[in-house]
Amino acid sequence: MQNVTVSAMRDDSFVVLKNVDWKVAPGEFWVLGGPQYSGKTDLLMLAAGLVSPVEGSCRWMGMENVSTGDARLADRLRMGLVFQGGQLFNRMSIAENVALPIRYRDDLEPDRVAPEVAGLLDAMELSFCAGSSPMQVAANWRSRVALARALILKPEILLLDNPLSGLGGRHRAWWQDFLDQLWKGHPWLDNRPLTLVVTADDFGPWQSSSRRFALLHDGRFQNLGSWMDVARSSHPALPELLPETP
């Protein structure tokens, strides 16, 4: 992204971020932090190609404008997006939710994708709720189902909106471990490393020397660098994102 202006997804007349310069290289693990309503979700939607920038230039894997038209759909699907809260389809079962993207993309009968879906649900400890409706499953598990639904298409880049929000301790540990496996190369993705971008209200759980951090604050995008740089930074908004930092 070069000099990009981002508008709110639900009101395109309202600008949330200006002058965003950001480049994600293959294999990187980015953590975008910021207080509520700082534009994290809107930036992620733009990065996923769901909305167009108000101004500036945005390129996805070397291509302009994957947000419109069916011709670029295959390129857009190289990126997966996991919404905060899951955004599951409530009229389908968990297994149907996970199967839908691949069935639609490849025009397949449910039976054809059933083994693949069962394997993914098993890898993510979701087999117990495969036949349940999303409303019958606790929120902790719903966001995990949303991750499975994004992974079924085997993306190269995965964007996750606040994945640890509202999770209990056990689920947070599972997510951190699983995302780390995906980043390094998970068997589900044929051990191919995945590029990851997550948003967070709190940098604390994401601290790692191998991750890159950016701060969204006051309508600005600031590339902070590595965890060492975050620790050294004196940005006034950082204490809010590092509650345990004295």
Binding site: M9, A48, L50, D70, F83, G85, Q87, L88, P101
Partner: peptide
Amino acid sequence: LGEVEALEALGID
């Protein structure tokens, strides 16, 4: 509930 955005994100028109 954001299901429409979810469809778009999954490449479903």
